[in-house]
């Protein structure tokens, strides 16, 4: 059930995470590096799922 799955995901959204990531990004070059690393993990997770 895609719809119910979506509802569950939204219910568990952490609204503070965007703010934390933004603070990393505004923190400077090192922060951008950490963010890219997190993104790389995210991209890898797509492939591991499939």
């Amino acid at each position: 059930m895609k719809i119910s799955g979506l509802v569950i995901l939204i219910a568990y959204l952490d609204p503070g995470s965007g703010g934390l990531l933004l603070q990393l990004l505004l923190g400077g070059v090192a922060g951008i590096g950490v963010l890219l690393k997190l993104y790389w993990k995210k991209i890898r997770s797509w492939f591991s799922k499939s």
């Binding site: 959204l13 995470s17 690393k37 995210k42």
Partner: peptide
């Protein structure tokens, strides 16, 4: 901020450690 929230909020990543 909205984009980062959308991109990562549903992922199980420990941001605080970063």
């Amino acid at each position: 901020q909205a984009w980062l929230e959308r991109s990562f909020a549903r992922k199980d990543v420990a941001i605080r450690n970063s």
